[in-house]
Every structure is written in structure tokens, then in C-alpha cells.
Amino acid sequence: MHGSEYKDGQHSTPEEDPRPKLWPRVLGSLAIVGMMVGLMIGRLTAPEPVELQQVEVQPGELVLWFNDEPRLHGEQVDGTVAIVFEAQGKAQGGQFKFNGKAVNWRVRRAEGGLVLTVVAARALQGDWAGAPQDGRWRLQVNLRE
């Protein structure tokens, strides 16, 4: 058995290979290419985010237009109508007349998306219904005293 010291110009451990190690580079390159292809496929198949496009005021109702059907949750609290949408959009607000009295509405951003609030000096109730129309989603909020 040979030791690790030199004897007659021979060594018991092989000399280090002077050629570069390409296998780690090949595996790293394959991992990077695979990740990039996966990201591109994910980007192509991801659904477009739901966006509030416009709000129309009509007699006794609000009409909200979205690019797709949003998930929503609505409540009537102390005479106020509030609806939370899982959507993106800009904050906006306005005022209109309902039975000769002023009604204020406001869309604001929140953690889960957008919140529509409709408030008046007297208690309001409302119901809402949505349906696809002209390639967009139309949500109609009807108000009553």
C-alpha cells in the first residue's frame, strides 16, 4: 500500500484534472432556462385582473362597468349601502339626486380591492345585479328608501 508521500516520482492520490468542470454549468443553465420558460407560460396563462372601467349615474341607480365579472360582497349597514369588489381601479366619487334629495357615492381603494359606499341623509336600501353586456360586466345598483 502506498502512502501519500512521493516515492520515486509517484503519488498515491491522483493529480487534479486541469480541465474545467462543465457539468455544474450545464445544470445551472438548464435550471435558469427552465425557470424562464415557466415564467413565460405562467404570464401567458394568468387571467387578466378585473378592473373597474367606469361608473354611470342613472335615475335611482348606479351602473358600474368592469372588464370581467368581479367577486363581490355587499351589505346594508345603518342605511348605507356598501359593496366590496375584488377589482382594481381608481378612487372616485360623486353626488346625484334620488327622489329630490342628494345621495353621495364614493369608490375607494381597500386591502381586498375596491369599496363602493352610497350614503344619503335618510336611510337607503339597495340591491344589485350583474350581467355580461357588450363584452364587459355591467353591475347595476338599484336604490330605494
Rank of each mutant, 00 (worst) to 15 (best):
V33Q: 08
V33L: 10
V33A: 14
G34F: 09
G34Q: 07
M40Q: 11
R43F: 12
T45Y: 13
A46G: 06
P47T: 03
Q53D: 03
Q54Y: 11
V55G: 04
V55E: 03
E56Q: 07
Q58D: 15
P59D: 13
P59R: 03
G60L: 05
E61L: 05
E61V: 04
L62W: 07
V63P: 09
F66M: 00
D68H: 08
R71M: 03
H73V: 13
G74D: 09
G74H: 06
E75C: 05
E75D: 12
D78E: 06
V81W: 09
V81R: 03
V81A: 12
A82E: 07
A82V: 06
I83P: 07
I83Q: 05
V84H: 03
G89T: 00
Q92D: 10
Q92A: 09
K97N: 13
F98V: 00
A102L: 06
A102G: 02
N104M: 13
R106G: 10
V107E: 04
R109P: 09
A110V: 08
A110I: 14
E111W: 08
E111F: 01
G112W: 09
G112H: 09
G113S: 02
L114E: 02
L114A: 07
V115T: 10
V115E: 13
L116K: 00
L116V: 01
L116G: 01
L116S: 01
V118W: 03
V119L: 14
V119A: 15
V119N: 14
A121P: 14
A121S: 15
R122P: 06
R122M: 07
G126V: 04
D127Q: 15
D127R: 15
D127W: 09
A129V: 12
A129D: 07
G130D: 00
D134G: 00
G135Q: 04
G135V: 04
R136V: 02
R136L: 03
W137K: 00
R138G: 06
R138H: 10
L139Y: 02
Q140M: 11
Q140E: 13
Q140G: 07
V141T: 01
V141D: 02
V141C: 02
